[in-house]
Structure formats: structure tokens, C-alpha cells
Amino acid sequence: MRDKENPEFSDTRLFKNNTASSAAKKLKRREDIEGTLMAISPFIGYILFGLFPMLLSLVVSFTELKSYDITRMKFVGFDNYKTILTSEMFYTSVVNTLYYCLSVPVNMVSALFIANLLTKPLKARGFARTVLFLPSVCSTVGVTLMWTWIYEANYGVINTFLSGIGLPKVGFMTTKEWFMPSVLFLSLWMGGTNIVLMQAALANVDSSLKEAARIDGAREITVFWKITFPGITPTLFYMLIMNLIGAMQEMAIMQVITTNGVGPGYRAVTLTYYLYRMAFTNTATDGLGMGSALSWIVAIAIIIITRINFRLSKKWVNYD
């Protein structure tokens, strides 16, 4: 039995009970505040630079705003949306955007092909990988400017070569027919990121499965379609989604590559470039209201297309 007068050491408390809990509470509160402050800064950033501009652009899309001064907004209801959806230029820009979206399958197929080559035991594999990835780390504007000189009608490398061998010069950036194919090739050249992703995906495919299939007498093509391809579908799907969204938002190349701002026969006017022009080039006539309305139309289109892609992915993407 314990002696009440002489308690054992284990029963001895160094400080009072209520003192300990108050210090812990204080520490917890401080941690809470610090944690909240830490967490709140990106949240404030998101509200200020993400959510607020987004909501503002939604509001602006229902107004006429031919200035950067927000006090000049005039509510016009759905007029901006109606004007855009009935304008010829909108449909021209849709066609141009869809044309540019061809870069997505072309880039994916070429990335798969090149990545597959790079998995082979080539001598200069590392060098080739670096060279292919290099354009992706360069600035789009810089690369596009470089290509404007390559494509240039009078002094460009390609046209100098063509005229050197007696062929007529080609207006890569000046003729309606050649403009978009030239831009697609340029985007293909910049597709190094896809190659790296694809290479990683190919490396992650279980090689024992492929070996087993080969031992069972499967041909290489069968090995690819039955084992390799299903293994890389999650990466292909990721690339599809990201590249498609990127293609639907393409603007930088178009803006830099044109000499007249819109390209031959308005070929350079993609949806995003069109909205940019409405908001920032033709501010006094189209304005930020029209630009914002088109940005929401584009956003909704991207959401719908992405949702459709996710639905369809259940039929071909293999996560096992």
C-alpha cells in the first residue's frame, strides 16, 4: 500500500496539471496559427490571382468594356456571346484551332516512334535524347523567331536551298496553304517533352511479360500491341489530355510567326489568339467584354472535350 504521506517518485509531478495543459494549448494554438498562415498564403494567392480574375472575367463577359478601366463597364447581357457565336471569324478560328489540334496525334505518334527507337541500344542514345529534348526547354518565342528565319520567303534556309537546286521558293508563312503545315512542323520539332514521357512509360512496361510472350512465340508487333501499348496507355492518355488542352490554347507561335498579325487568310487566328486580339489588340472596338466571353466559350469547350476524353478513356486506357 502506498504511503499517502510519502508518495513514490513515479507519482510525483514536476509542475501542476493545469500549468502543463496551458503550455500545450499555447503551443498547439501557435502551431495552428503558423500552419494556417502557411496554408493561407497560397490560398490567398489563388483567390487573388486565380479565382478573382476568373470571376471577374465571367462578370466582364456580360459587359461592354472597351478600356482597361473597369468603371467603364456597361452590362449587355448575352450580347457578347451572341455576337461571337454569329461571327464568321469565330468559326474561322475554330477551324484554325482544330487544324492546329492535328499536332496532338502527330506529336504523340512521332514521340512514341522516336522514344521506341531510343530504347534500343544505340551508341549516341544520350546525345540524341538531349538533342531531341533541347527545343522543349527553349522559349517558344525564341524558337518561333528562329523558325521565321528558317521559313523566310526570301532568305530562309529552306528557300535558299530550294532555289539552289532550281526549285521555286515556297511561301511557308505567306500562303494560306503552307502556313498551318509549317506551324505544325514547328510544334512537332518542339515536342521533346512527349518523347521523354514516352520513354519513361516504355521503360516501365514489365519486361518479364514481354520476355514470356516472346518465349511463347509472339511476334514483335503482337508484343507491342498486346503488352507494351496497354502498359503505356495511362501516359498516352495524360499526353492526349495535356497536349489537346495546350493545342486549344495555342497563341504564342501564331502571334510571333505572322508578319501581318493574322497570318495569310487569317490562318493564324486560333481561338485563344482571337480572344487575345479582341481584348488587347482591338480593345477599342471589340474590347475585354468580348475577349472574356470568348475565353469562357473556349474554357467550356475544353471542359467538355476533356470530359468526353475521360469517358472514352475507360475503353482504352489500362491502369492494371
Partner: peptide
């Protein structure tokens, strides 16, 4: 002449890129 030159693009773009190229 105007607040922007989109009105010039309307006639000049097809003129320069198509009429002059003969398409």
C-alpha cells in the same frame, strides 16, 4: 484612321495573301 486596324485586315489580308498570290 481608326481606333485599330482590324478594318484594314478585312480587305488587306485576302488581297495580300490570296489575290496577289493568284489564288
Amino acid at each position: 484612321y481608326m481606333a485599330d486596324y482590324e478594318w484594314i485586315n478585312v480587305w488587306a489580308v485576302p488581297l495580300n495573301s490570296e489575290v496577289r498570290n493568284g489564288t
